[in-house]
Structure formats: structure tokens, C-alpha cells
Design a protein around this nucleic acid. Structure first.
Length: 271
DNA sequence: AAAAGCCCCTGGATGC
DNA sequence: TGCATCCAGGGGCTTT
């Protein structure tokens, strides 16, 4: 389940290696979430300027100002292969470059590889134009976060995941950040005090930064560009731990469903 | 207009 | 052992 940390770990794993590389070809397998949006042959000969991340999107910048947008969806992972083997049944995109083959492995095919002409590309604007602030960036401001929370009538957990207060927080890290902040996931967003809002703001940053340090979470099949699994799942306090003792107080972790997604929390530490 | 629900997909776990 | 069912959830789209 790639969230911001897994996407960032992926980016860090291949950005330096692919910078300056020349694109030879893009080979696509089964359809992904969206079509590529351009004839793949038009990408041949382009050079990679760098790789950015915005929310959970990877943006591979090319020398003509266009970029290739990659989303890992639910089950996607990227590998950078020195010598490409034949694609497996779940390998759906191979970007062959002078620095190796960047391969998207995505069994559930919720992922995407889309070519965007530039920042003004209508599709790019649709996906990227209305995103909230980056949690690890300077524009994720405690005051603005609090003000936005006050306008929300929903529970804090789905509000955290909605993508306009802050981006990159998915189901795992929403539960973890709320645990770290001592806030119950069902608390109405507009009821949080400024102090608790600040604590949550700090917790979101801390949990995501820590997860990046640990190589992300490999709860199912996420692996980094070199194929190595992440380790943050070993530090998860509540996610996926229903019935197991809270690491802080020992009370059994409880779970519930919010907006069709499972939520985990400690009934004693989170009020 | 905010908020809730739907849906895309497949592997793994569970139940009979 | 095998088949049916459920679950995982990112996020755009549709409905309320």
C-alpha cells in the first residue's frame, strides 16, 4: 500500500541513477488505470532531467518540459534493472533507458503511467492541481491546518486522508499519526483544539519522516527500487494490530471501519 | 457544496 | 482439495 513514504523511498532509490539517462523505449503490458496519453514511440530519445514527487505521484521530468507521471496505486512497485529479464505476468510497464530498465510491477493495476505535456497539461492539472500541502514541506503550516480542520464536519481520520488538508497520508499512516497524537480517529475534525491540532500536525510529519527513514512499510508486497523490503511495519503501533497490546499502555488495540476503510486505535491512549 | 458511497483490480485468507 | 466469498485500499467519479 504505497503511501507517501513508500513513494518517496522509491524516488530516492532511482532518481540519482536515472538522471541524465536517455530513453530508448517504453513497453506497456496490460492496461493500467489510465492510458499513456501519447504514442510511446514519441518518448524515444528524450533525456531524463530528474524525478520529483508530488503527493503520491512520481514525476519523471524530461528534457522537453514534459514528464511521465507514475502512480503506484495499491500494489505497485518500481524496480530499476540493469539487465531486464522477460516481464512477468504483473509487470505492466518497462521504461528502457541508458541507465537501465525502470519496471512497474503492479498486480492489481490501480497504478498508472501517463505522459503529460507539461504543468499546463489538462490531465496533469486535473490530478495535481488541487492537491493540499506536502506534509514534509514548509507549506504545511500548523495555523492553516487548524483553520482547515475547523471547517470540516467529518471525523478526523477521513479528513486527514482526503488530500486537501495534507497529501500523502493513507490508511496506515493516518492511524499511526492519530495514535502518536493521542487523538481518537472518530473525533469530529472541527472539535480539535489548537493544541491537539498542533500535536497532530507534528505527528503527521514525524510518522512520515520516520517511515521514509525506515524504507517504508512492506505490509504486503511493497519493495524499494533495489527489491529490498521496508521495515516501518515493524514499528507500527496500531495499524493491523487489532487485539494486540498497545505499545504504550498494553490495552488491546481496537479496530473499526470509517469510510469503507479499517481504522486501528488504542481506546485508552486516544481520546 | 460537502460528504458519503461506488468502482476499478487481483492475490491471499477464510469458510464450507 | 476446491470453490465461493471477503478483504486490502488510492482516488476519481457519482450520488445524496
Amino acid at each position: 500500500m504505497p503511501e507517501l513514504p513508500e513513494v518517496e523511498v522509491t524516488r530516492l532509490g532511482f532518481a540519482d541513477r536515472i538522471r541524465g539517462a536517455r530513453l530508448h523505449a517504453l513497453a506497456l503490458g496490460k492496461p493500467l488505470r489510465w492510458p499513456l496519453g501519447v504514442d510511446a514511440q514519441q518518448l524515444a530519445g528524450r533525456t531524463v532531467r530528474g524525478v520529483r514527487r508530488r503527493a503520491k505521484y512520481l514525476l519523471i521530468d524530461l528534457d522537453d518540459g514534459s514528464f511521465i507521471l507514475v502512480h503506484l496505486g495499491m500494489s505497485g512497485s518500481l524496480r530499476l534493472l540493469d539487465a531486464p529479464s522477460a516481464p512477468g505476468p504483473h509487470d505492466h510497464a518497462d521504461l528502457h533507458t541508458s541507465a537501465g530498465t525502470l519496471r512497474l510491477h503492479d498486480p492489481r493495476r490501480f497504478g498508472a503511467v501517463v505522459h503529460c505535456a507539461g504543468e499546463a497539461d489538462p490531465f496533469a492539472r486535473k490530478l495535481l492541481g488541487h492537491l493540499g500541502p506536502e506534509p514534509l514541506g514548509d507549506d504545511f503550516d500548523p495555523r492553516a491546518f487548524f483553520d482547515a480542520l475547523r471547517r470540516r464536519r467529518t471525523a478526523i481520520k477521513p479528513a486527514l486522508m482526503a488530500g486537501d488538508l495534507v497529501v500523502g497520508v493513507g490508511n496506515i499512516y493516518a492511524s499511526e499519526a492519530l495514535f502518536m497524537a493521542g487523538i481518537r480517529p472518530t473525533t469530529p475534525a472541527h472539535r480539535l483544539s489548537r493544541a491537539r491540532s498542533d500535536r497532530l500536525h507534528a505527528a503527521v510529519r514525524a510518522v512520515l519522516a520516520r517511515a521514509v527513514e525506515r524504507g517504508g512499510s512492506s505490509l504486503r508486497d511493497f519493495v524499494g527500487v533495489d527489491g529490498a523490503a521496508g521495515h516501518f511495519q515493524l514499528e507500527a503501533a496500531v495499524y493491523g494490530r487489532e487485539g494486540l497490546p498497545c505499545p504504550r499502555c498494553g490495552t488491546p488495540v481496537r479496530s473499526l471501519r470509517q469510510a469503507q476503510r479499517s481504522t486501528f486505535f488504542c481506546p485508552r491512549c486516544q481520546r
